[in-house]
Amino acid sequence: MKRFFLVPVLALLLSGCSSNWGWYVVNPSTKAGWTNLSFLLSGLKYTVALSLTAIVISVTLGLLVALPGLSSNRWLRGASRGYVELVRAVPILVMILWVYYGLPQLTGLTIGVFWAGVIALALSDSAFEAEIFRAGIQSIAKGQYEAAYSVSLGYGDTMRYVILPQAIRRILPALGNQLVYMLKMSSLVSVIGMQELTRKANELVVTEYRPLEIYTILVLEYLALILVVSAGVRWLERRMQTDERA
């Protein structure tokens, strides 16, 4: 496995090749170090909850935007296209600020940081999910629709039981990428005060003045999270493919 060559590189980096390291700040064998470390790690559940909720919504939304984009009706296609172009053009940070500070004024409802973060991330990502779904669905041969229609399935059942199961297998790697991307982009929600990994690290840096160690831990937290996700996606891919090939 290629990624194991990272281990010696990191070890070298962390093994005090410079006198500037001050690992005491997160040394779990001291009381203060342990408190700091668990403070940093306590952001993990928010990062995970935020990203997973957002990805579920954005995948659903992406599919709902992709389907009319494949219609033969040009108004539906236009609406889908318009959504993708508009949403894709908004930087994620701008989307977060707009949803958190702007949307409440527009709707009169106040939204907590968590849901503001979820909405902003999900909206931003949905445009990309829509494009992924569109490409995946378009890659399925016309004969599959014809066979499904010939056994009297309607459009909904054809999509649900014939087209999407095949399309999703094909786009699984791309969906996995989006989840990784989502985990990383969730760090931006720290700007509105969401207590996720990055926010925790920023707060600790302010009190401890050890940015090098604390941000290194932060890097490792994201790395660990994303390696777990990648392994999960690969496992899922393998499982779904043995289904078909055997």
């Binding site: 041969a141 599959q144 066979a147 010939s150 009297s152 399935l153 014939v162």
Partner: peptide
């Protein structure tokens, strides 16, 4: 019923599931 030159079976379903899809869903 229609039979095509290229068969157009559903590759993600087993043979029996291919046969059952229409009767169950339609």
């Amino acid at each position: 019923g229609m039979v095509f030159q290229q068969f157009n079976l559903f590759p993600h379903l087993t043979v029996i599931e291919n046969l059952m899809l229409g009767p169950v869903r339609a």
